[in-house]
Design a protein around this nucleic acid. Structure first.
Lengths: 154, 154
DNA sequence: TTATTTGAAGAATAATTTTCTTTTATATTC
DNA sequence: GAATATAAAAGAAAATTATTCTTCAAATAA
């Protein structure tokens, strides 16, 4: 089934705060609790809502170094791609991995404690892979904006 | 106050699923509900826990084009930085904006409906800014990994 | 018109959160 | 070492919320 305008209103609220109660949501969009409940449960079932997560303060949990890596593989074979993806997905330091268009193969977002632990990650996990030909690291000096909220049009 | 080992156990669980009940958490880490409750409330207050959010399926809400932009400013003056940051932060299409080391000034993550709407964003919002000298767009062709979970060490 | 389906409302029940009191363990002071 | 404070945890009660069930109204199809 499709998401209608009422669903969008609910999603806009939930994106920002997953802890809103059915009562609060129902008051904000002028509807009783029942349809709110049913719509959310339906969207969870359909996979429109993927999950509810907790966002932590990076500094306060001791992971404040964010690095973007451009990775180029040795040879662009299916086997090399698969192997790289399987291994890189396992690393907890890698929070994002994308195949991108342009001058390199993968864009990684890596979060570690500090420069020392990033160096370890780089040397012991990334460089070690035989499929990796080239790594270029961009260090985040300041985080201007970071949100999980998608722009939902009506 | 510091986060101790028990706090870390709680955070590891909550990062993956913000909807776990106190009861469920207390069972998973062998503690009664009271300390679980108190610790979570304390970490919310201290800002260790920033927020609880809902993650939506990009395809199913009609925002499936992800683009990374490398931006170079005209002149690297404080005024130019401030102006650029203030405007770019407002755009709902921009979900991330970082100042990075290396060959350019800003790294943006932009999410839009499709190539047409990205083109509109690019032409009507990004290029328009007089401070922006150069934009290089990398299009995400495949998302291999994407998580909000930080690697917490014990 | 008469069924049928869909969405919403309200009430009852079940579960969870929150608060309060008591207990236990860990330091601290004399 | 004993007594006293302090902090953390446990348990129970109260308040709130989620879930289920039944009813009602509107839209759709036969």
């Amino acid at each position: 089934m499709e998401v209608d305008k009422t669903d969008l209103k609910i999603l806009k609220l939930l994106q920002e705060n997953a802890q809103l109660t059915f009562k609060e949501i129902s008051q904000k969009i002028n509807l009783s609790i029942t349809p709110i409940h049913d719509r959310i449960k339906r969207m969870e079932k359909e996979g429109v809502i993927e999950k509810y997560v907790t966002i932590l303060n990076k500094k306060k949990v001791g992971t404040s170094l964010v690095v973007y890596c451009n990775i180029t593989l040795d040879k662009q074979t299916r086997h090399n791609f698969t192997e790289f993806e399987e291994r890189v997905t396992q690393f907890p330091e890698v929070v994002e991995c994308h195949i991108v268009s342009g001058g390199f193969d993968y864009l990684l977002k890596v979060i570690t404690k500090d420069m020392e632990s990033y160096n370890q990650f780089h040397q012991q996990k990334l460089s070690v892979m035989s499929t990796v030909a080239h790594i270029h690291s961009f260090f985040v000096m300041s985080e201007i904006k970071s949100t999980t909220v998608l722009h939902l049009q009506d």
